[in-house]
Simulated assay, not measured.
Amino acid sequence: MTLRNALLERPNSLNLLRLVLAGSVIVGHAWPVGREGAAPGWVESVVSLAVPGFFCLSGFLIAHSRMRLPLGRFMWNRCLRILPAYWVVLAAVALVAAPLSTLGGGVWSASEAVRYMASNAALRQFTWTIPGTVDGWAWNGSLWTLWFEFIAYIGAGVLLSIALVRRHPATVSAVLYVLGAVSVWWMFGPGGISTDLFRDLAWLGTYFLAGMTFYFLSGRVPLDARWAIVSVACLALFLSLEWAHFAGGLPLAYSLLWAGAVIPARWAQRNDVSYGVYIYAFPVQVLLEWFVPGLGVALHIVLAFAITVPLAWTSWLLVERPAMRLKHLDLRRDHPRVPPRREPTLAP
């Protein structure tokens, strides 16, 4: 059986994997947010793969979506998936969490809250704090990746609009992946590039390209536990050698895709709360530390999950899922209504 058979022609557990990755971000943030210093080395190594893992899965899913949809409809769907919930979490932090935090000290300013929402509205994080609240801590240290995610959407959308690329997508994506990996190696090594904007774009973009490459090769790549074992072993080796940031894309992507095909959690296809967990966890953790400092890592993690998961479900039910129902909205006037095509649940 190939990856295409396992992931595109039958139910899969990719939503569950994204939820696990989002949960691991909560674990990783527990030490710095809880003022417990750095996480243990093995925890840091595992958690450091969470965001790259998201990008691997996104590359696979986004390539699938773009190859099925015209560019305009593809970008409309991507905006619906990421922006409404993002804007709501900005408002929730600025207008609910920040005022609530003043019960533990500080002063909330409506003008600063509006500035926080307005300056961050386009996904790029320009304002991290709301002055006067929580001693100037960053309110949501997880949102920085979303700008890079959206840039990847645009890049994939435009790239796969080129006729030559659409005829040879596997070759093009594989070549770009290799070029990306080399550029990341150079930036972090001999090039000495220190600008996070360029480093993060190349780093996360390379993982995204790894997922795209596996999508286009999915009809030829087998679903094989031996391949998964080798991938995990390579990933562990690269982590030990500190090579994972430029060489970990393919083994991480295959490991996750294999797990998504074989883990029996088909129920996860119907509901995807991973995005909500990702965007709400950090402000929840900030409030926990603000109101109940010194909880200890274990209790901090348990309480963070207990509060974040209901918020994520609420976001899914009231914001994300209703927004996604607009995917088939016909934006053209005076056009005969055509029954919408049923989209596969694979597409995020």
Rank of each mutant, 00 (worst) to 15 (best):
A6T: 11
A6P: 09
N12M: 04
R18Y: 08
R18F: 06
A30W: 07
G34A: 05
E36V: 12
A38Q: 14
P40Y: 07
W42Q: 00
E44R: 14
S48G: 14
V51K: 01
V51G: 04
G53D: 05
L57W: 11
L57Y: 12
S58T: 07
I62P: 02
S65I: 03
L71S: 08
Y86D: 01
W87T: 06
L90A: 01
A98C: 08
A98Q: 11
A98F: 09
S101M: 03
S111K: 06
S119N: 13
T127F: 09
T129S: 11
P131Q: 02
W137E: 10
W139M: 12
W144S: 02
W147C: 11
W147R: 02
F150V: 00
I151A: 14
I154T: 13
L159T: 12
L159K: 09
I162W: 12
L164W: 15
R166P: 02
V178F: 01
V182N: 05
S183T: 15
L197W: 14
F198Q: 10
F198T: 13
R199V: 14
W203E: 13
G205T: 02
F214Y: 14
C234Q: 13
A236P: 04
A236G: 11
F238C: 13
F246Y: 11
L252G: 00
Y254Q: 01
S255W: 09
S255C: 14
L256R: 05
A261W: 05
R266I: 08
A268M: 07
G276P: 03
Q285K: 09
L287M: 12
W290H: 14
F291Y: 13
H300T: 12
I301W: 01
I301Q: 01
L303T: 13
F305P: 04
I307T: 07
P310F: 10
P310G: 12
W316D: 00
W316H: 04
L318I: 00
L318P: 04
L318S: 06
E320A: 04
M324Y: 01
K327M: 06
D330Q: 08
L331Q: 14
D334Q: 15
H335T: 15
R337F: 09
P339V: 01
T345F: 12
